[in-house]
Amino acid sequence: MKQINSNTLLELLQSDVREILLQCTALQNTNQALLTQQPQPGKWSVAQVLEHLNIYARYYITAIEERLHLNQSGPNQNFTPGWLGNYFTNLMKPTGDKHIKSKMKSPANAVPSAQPDAVAMLTEFINHQHHLLNLLQIARTANLDYNRVPISLTKLIKLKLGDTFRFFIAHEQRHFLQIENTLKQVEQNRLSVLSAA
């Protein structure tokens, strides 16, 4: 795998999180009713997507923070992605032209409730993003290759700290593309109802 300067990687990831926070600002200014509407039966509303992301954030932010507290090695100048971490990241990350490469079913423990509170889910998510920005800053003092974080599905598989950040943020980017598409569909549905009235 191709090496990348550790600080450059962390700066890129911080930039990705700031972009997500900008999108959250737009969501804060969106009619709450739109955030709770499903675009189609069986498809998640924006509030449900946010709850799903919060489920992952509760796990990964805690796991990353614990790993950083246990950090006993200094920073490494260059980070080399692991093959599994790279695979997971590429599987999640949307393409440059804003497409999701492959659909996948969420694990049972990450499926959101039927009607989550949109405001509560968005507020929690924004708090997680600010926490994540702080962890990315702290990670400048850690070895992104040596420190490893267990994945949420099983404690037996651990990803390099750098790969954990990459995968976790790619997962958020994937679902923010889903949020964008969901809002477009919900708005289309609303306009169709209005024009039929």
Results as ranks from 00 to 15, higher is better:
residue 64 I to L: 02
residue 172 E to P: 05
residue 19 E to P: 01
residue 22 L to T: 12
residue 146 Y to W: 12
residue 137 Q to I: 00
residue 143 N to S: 15
residue 60 Y to M: 05
residue 33 A to Q: 07
residue 76 N to F: 02
residue 182 T to A: 14
residue 2 K to F: 10
residue 105 K to G: 07
residue 104 M to R: 06
residue 62 T to H: 08
residue 67 R to D: 15
residue 131 H to E: 13
residue 26 A to L: 09
residue 58 R to A: 06
residue 65 E to S: 11
residue 193 V to N: 09
residue 53 L to R: 04
residue 145 D to S: 09
residue 175 H to I: 03
residue 29 N to I: 08
residue 161 L to A: 04
residue 190 R to H: 11
residue 91 L to R: 03
residue 107 P to N: 04
residue 45 S to P: 15
residue 140 R to V: 01
residue 115 Q to I: 14
residue 21 L to Y: 01
residue 180 E to A: 05
residue 14 Q to C: 00
residue 73 S to F: 15
residue 109 N to Q: 02
residue 108 A to P: 15
residue 134 N to C: 05
residue 142 A to N: 08
residue 111 V to W: 14
residue 47 A to V: 14
residue 103 K to C: 07
residue 14 Q to I: 01
residue 182 T to K: 10
residue 10 L to H: 00
residue 146 Y to M: 06
residue 60 Y to Q: 01
residue 124 E to I: 03
residue 106 S to F: 14
residue 136 L to K: 02
residue 175 H to G: 02
residue 184 K to H: 14
residue 15 S to A: 08
residue 95 T to W: 06
residue 146 Y to K: 08
residue 86 N to W: 08
residue 108 A to N: 06
residue 12 L to Y: 11
residue 152 S to T: 04
residue 36 T to W: 05
residue 67 R to P: 13
residue 16 D to H: 06
residue 120 A to Q: 13
residue 84 L to T: 10
residue 139 A to S: 12
residue 21 L to S: 06
residue 69 H to P: 06
residue 98 K to V: 10
residue 180 E to V: 04
residue 101 K to V: 13
residue 107 P to A: 00
residue 196 A to G: 12
residue 143 N to R: 12
residue 104 M to F: 03
residue 126 I to L: 05
residue 32 Q to W: 07
residue 132 L to I: 04
residue 190 R to T: 14
residue 130 H to F: 13
residue 190 R to L: 14
residue 83 W to N: 12
residue 106 S to Q: 10
residue 58 R to H: 11
residue 90 N to G: 09
residue 102 S to W: 03
residue 139 A to G: 10
residue 170 A to W: 08
residue 5 N to T: 10
residue 1 M to D: 13
residue 6 S to A: 14
residue 116 P to K: 02
residue 10 L to A: 00
residue 172 E to F: 12
residue 58 R to W: 03
residue 30 T to A: 04
residue 148 R to L: 12
residue 102 S to F: 02
residue 139 A to N: 09
residue 119 V to D: 14
residue 184 K to C: 07
residue 123 T to P: 13
residue 75 P to T: 00
residue 48 Q to C: 05
residue 71 N to H: 09
residue 65 E to C: 00
residue 126 I to S: 09
residue 8 T to W: 00
residue 195 S to K: 05
residue 73 S to L: 12
residue 197 A to S: 09
residue 165 F to E: 01
residue 74 G to R: 01
residue 51 E to H: 09
residue 125 F to A: 06
residue 53 L to T: 13
residue 141 T to V: 08
residue 62 T to R: 07
residue 69 H to I: 13
residue 85 G to W: 06
residue 46 V to M: 03
residue 47 A to N: 12
residue 7 N to V: 00
residue 184 K to E: 15
residue 43 K to I: 13
residue 30 T to K: 01
residue 52 H to V: 02
residue 178 Q to L: 08
residue 133 L to H: 05
residue 62 T to A: 11
residue 2 K to D: 15
residue 20 I to M: 02
residue 162 G to F: 02
residue 118 A to P: 15
residue 173 Q to R: 07
residue 150 P to E: 03
residue 45 S to R: 05
residue 172 E to V: 04
residue 24 C to V: 14
residue 146 Y to G: 05
residue 8 T to M: 00
residue 145 D to E: 04
residue 97 D to N: 08
residue 61 I to H: 08
residue 151 I to Y: 10
residue 149 V to T: 08
residue 177 L to N: 11
residue 119 V to I: 14
residue 49 V to D: 07
residue 88 F to L: 11
residue 66 E to P: 11
